[in-house]
Design a protein around this nucleic acid. Structure first.
Lengths: 221, 221
DNA sequence: CCCTGTAATTATGGATACAGTATTATGTGG
DNA sequence: CCACATAATACTGTATCCATAATTACAGGG
């Protein structure tokens, strides 16, 4: 594959660092050693530092002047701030999506939802994950608000800083599936208000599941 | 005043560039000449480029690989996306603020509102501007959601790209004042739901005023 | 024995230098 | 005279280098 859109080096580096942060290979609180990373990637510090500026704007790392760069530590209160915000935004997306959706769009959503059902049925967690993400993305796409999309994506990146975030879905796979069914039904019925409300609550349920994970993790420690 | 928290050069530069962009000294669509600006500020291109990365993340400029940096052009559809989003966010802020406000907070808001009243009374547009901003900021502060705040601020920066944005307030000074009165009343009454709704509509009215400005500007051209 | 002050080391931030690509200008052929 | 190709120029992107500030280790004094 020849690169038709030559992305700059700093963008590549930023993306790689994001992945490492999401994978907690670079864990919250970790110091980021610029020269170590630079020689690891076989590049100079310049594009690496530019990448870090971008990640800092996204909230994934914190740049302390003259003291280096650290992976952001996300706190309980932060999660309590972000989740209601996400719930409101994704809820609105769902409502707008219903208002704008053409029959073909609803069909596509149904198809994605079917993949979610079968993934849950077969206990394929990663497939469930994937279908879940796609479902949300598709709805956000239908809402058709570029700026809302970008806000949601930024916030979701920050949420991924929390190690428990991805795990929390596993514990409530059936519940999540049920919520998705209800949302899908509201969409099919063309009931925008109900879709909005259901999506809103769906996200907040995610917060509660995460809180339970935290409690469990704290008990084990 | 000695600088106790030495902010990095790229931050200073980013702030200066923001001001120049907001002042439309660097207008939407303009190409940003790196070496020219660098020598203008008496610095090298390195921190300047880092500043541009930050501004790009904020959406104020667009970085086209190998083709340079351009000030973002904000379109009609963009405004139609952003204003409803802002209305929702600031509305929520107002509601949360009412729920969390202590009597002292309400008193402070009243005081700010009084400044708005007298500024309008004396026709001091810049003072009106200032009080207006402070009122909104105070409410956002009371809501106490760091992440919502940061989202709102980012979006507001983007709105400032539109030259007409600041002017649009002038044309509806009395109307805006009236809306503020109603919001203030709802806050005093502790009616969160009404405050939310009023603030929401207040922002949307701003969008309509801007649309009228655009129409007028188009007619003159 | 701990605390403080100083020196050495190390990393960050900025400047300069260089390579590669896009744009523009110029010249030649149709 | 216009179109296209080629060369010159200018700017972006990356690397290297240097200065300065922070951290750490160590020595001396309380």
């Amino acid at each position: 594959m020849t690169r038709i859109a030559p992305t700059a080096l700093y963008q590549e580096v930023a993306e790689r660092l994001r992945q490492r942060i999401f994978a907690h290979e670079l864990a919250p609180g970790d110091w980021i050693d610029e020269q170590r990373l630079a020689e690891q990637y076989g590049i100079s510090r310049t594009p690496l530092r530019e990448a870090l500026k971008v990640l800092a704007s996204e909230g994934l790392v914190e740049l302390k002047p003259r003291r280096g760069c650290y992976v952001t530590e996300i706190s309980r209160p932060d999660l309590d701030d972000i989740f209601p915000l996400m719930a409101m935004l994704e809820g609105r997306c769902a409502g707008d999506a219903v208002r704008k959706a053409m029959p073909a769009d609803v069909a596509q959503l149904s198809e994605i939802h079917e993949r979610l059902e079968s993934a849950a049925d077969e206990g394929r967690i990663d497939a469930f994950f994937e279908a879940n993400q796609e479902f949300h993305r598709k709805i956000q796409g239908l809402a058709g608000n570029r700026w809302m999309l970008s806000v949601i994506q930024d916030l979701r990146k920050v949420l991924k800083l929390s190690r428990l975030h991805s795990l929390s879905l596993e514990g409530r796979l059936q519940q999540s599936l049920g919520e998705h069914r209800a949302i899908m039904a509201a969409i099919r019925a063309g009931d925008a208000a109900r879709a909005e409300k259901l999506m809103h609550d769906h996200i907040l349920c995610g917060r509660e599941a995460l809180a339970r994970m935290e409690a469990k993790a704290a008990k084990q420690a």
